[in-house]
Write a protein that binds this DNA or RNA. Structure first.
Ligand SMILES: [Zn+2]
Ligand SMILES: [Zn+2]
Ligand SMILES: [Zn+2]
Ligand SMILES: [Zn+2]
Lengths: 133, 133
DNA sequence: GTCGATATGTTATGACATTACATCATATTT
DNA sequence: AAATATGATGTAATGTCATAACATATCGAC
């Protein structure tokens, strides 16, 4: 029984659709450029929408790329625990995994140190099977 | 039998010492400011030194902070596998862990996808025991 | 309608990182 | 020693990512 999501605002929808249709990570400024024809003029319009979309878990931020990507979980179930991003440096393809073993171990180590985890980032850089040597 | 490390250059040493003495993450521009009295004038002097220190594993880059930190392994043994950084958002304290379970599982999942891992980053953000509510 | 909360528009600024080119130091070869 | 190659350094300019500050607009609760 989850509360129904309030609708996205116009700007939030535009930003989300841009990311969802790209199916790949985009920087905030790339999103801005793609939305200029829809009236976007300034970075803050993008960043504000991104912040709200992040809060709702509809998108993710890839820290190692300074870029954003639509969540690959179509049904918007909450993300419990760490998300693992597998990023090909050659073709730019990104895959999102959730791994219970990694998540459990992260939490085990955090508890050991009495560390309260607010967010966990796992990003793998390398080459996907299609780009292998 | 590891080959002896060639000595660091003057700039590399200055940057490394700055990070080692700070014992905390510093941005490239913070390092630059601290080294102005030693003749540093431009960001590139810092970034070039950081690149070399990263190559040798003497320092790490914290992707979620856009900052750099000296490796906490005093003996400069190679880092095999994922390094886990535990970062307190309140006091800024950073701890570096190496966890075989996390590393093994990352590699297991990568192999499943035929993904060749070049680097793996795990960063936990939250509150350390000293900063708990 | 008034008020409060949220969203938006706009300008300017701050923070992080690289490109391009010139110069200097050092090691190797001839 | 002179010539060459390699890596390090100095400097200016530029590019990329993100936020501060302030004004205006929209919408629902009362
Ligand atoms: Zn997701
Ligand atoms: Zn690829
Ligand atoms: Zn280390
Ligand atoms: Zn702390």
């Amino acid at each position: 029984m989850t509360a129904p999501l309030p609708n996205l605002t116009k700007n939030q929808s535009l930003v989300f659709e841009t990311l969802a249709e790209a199916g790949a990570p985009l920087s905030a400024y790339t999103i801005l450029d793609q939305l200029r024809e829809h009236g976007f003029r300034a970075p803050l319009q993008v960043y504000r929408a991104l912040d709200k979309l992040l809060e709702r878990g509809l998108i993710h931020r890839l820290e190692s790329l300074n870029a954003f990507v639509a969540c690959q979980h179509k049904h918007s179930h909450g993300h419990q625990g760490a998300t693992v991003f597998v990023i090909c440096g050659t073709c730019g393809d990104v895959n999102e995994l959730h791994d219970q073993v990694i998540n459990d171990q992260i939490m085990r180590r955090a508890v050991e140190q009495k560390f309260q985890v607010e967010s966990a980032m796992v990003e793998l850089r390398g080459r996907c099977s299609g780009c292998a040597d």
